[in-house]
Simulated assay, not measured.
Amino acid sequence: MNDAARAAVLGALRERRSIRKYTDEPVADDEVRAVLEAGRWAPSGKNNQPWRFLAVRRGEPRQEALARHTKYAHIVRGAGALVCVFLERARMYDARKDHQGAGACLQNMLLAAHALGLGAVWIGEIVNREPEVVAAVGVDPEAYEMMAVIALGRPAQEGSSDRIPLESLMLEPF
């Protein structure tokens, strides 16, 4: 990797923010596909790639169905598109490692959205009502475990975030 590419990747990691408000401008299908492709390339234990995606366009009945099952309904309703991320139970081999892989998949998608100039946020709270959510979007709960929903859209706000100093995160000095 050359210096420019390295700087771009490291910069994207520091610059990406969770965006919860979106304009009415649509998100193009090819942009959603690029976000999905980024998720597809995430690392997974034994390369089992257990994630499965359900993309929901703005205005589809499933958008409102998702909104009814989260305290973040305003984010879901305002999104230009949503990506529901599931794990296919038959592809899983170790719950902890597969859940970690799903996190990497979600992060890849968030970084792709950022690179495309989209705003995005990882909605994890929605899994608190997983049975109702899975039924509402028409997915088989015996076959799939819900991990999260990513809301996508054209940003209508700037993101902000603070980070704990690295020294405070270290168990011992490096």
Score class of each variant (00 low, 15 high):
K71H: 11
P50D: 01
V56I: 15
A73C: 08
R68W: 05
F86D: 00
L66V: 01
L82N: 04
L66K: 03
G78M: 10
H69P: 06
D94W: 13
A81V: 03
V85C: 11
R91T: 01
G59N: 08
C84W: 04
L87M: 14
Q49V: 10
G78A: 15
Y72G: 07
R68C: 07
A65Y: 03
E60F: 04
F53R: 01
G101W: 01
Y93E: 15
A95Y: 11
E60A: 15
M92A: 05
R68A: 15
Q63A: 11
G80F: 11
V76M: 11
H74S: 12
Q49S: 14
A67G: 03
G78D: 05
E88L: 13
A65C: 09
L54P: 04
P61V: 03
K97L: 14
G59T: 01
I75T: 01
Q63W: 11
D98P: 08
R68V: 08
Y72K: 09
L54N: 13
A102N: 04
R62E: 04
T70K: 10
R57E: 11
V85K: 00
L66P: 02
Y72A: 12
Q49W: 02
E88N: 09
A79F: 13
A102Q: 03
L87A: 12
N47G: 05
F53A: 01
R91W: 11
F53N: 02
V56C: 04
G80C: 02
C84L: 15
R62M: 02
E60G: 07
A65S: 04
L66Y: 01
A102S: 09
A81H: 09
A65F: 01
R77N: 10
L66C: 09
V76P: 03
Q100V: 01
D94L: 13
C84K: 00
R89S: 02
G101S: 14
V83R: 04
R96W: 09
V76H: 03
A102Y: 00
R68E: 14
L87R: 08
T70F: 09
R58G: 12
R52A: 09
A67S: 05
T70Q: 10
P50W: 04
F53V: 01
R68L: 11
A81L: 06
G101V: 03
D94F: 10
V85D: 02
R89M: 11
I75V: 15
F53S: 02
A67T: 07
N48Y: 04
E64H: 14
G101A: 10
V83N: 06
Y72E: 13
A65V: 04
H74R: 13
L66M: 02
K97N: 13
R52H: 13
R58H: 14
M92S: 07
W51L: 06
L87H: 04
E88W: 05
G78I: 07
A65M: 06
G59C: 08
D98K: 13
Q63T: 02
R52N: 10
E88A: 15
Q63P: 05
F53H: 03
A65H: 03
N48K: 14
V85L: 15
R91D: 02
G59H: 06
C84R: 01
N47I: 08
R52T: 13
Q63I: 00
V85T: 14
G101R: 07
Q100A: 10
F53E: 03
D98G: 06
R57N: 07
A102H: 02
T70R: 12
H99Y: 12
R96D: 06
V85S: 05
A73V: 08
E88M: 05
V85A: 06
V76E: 00
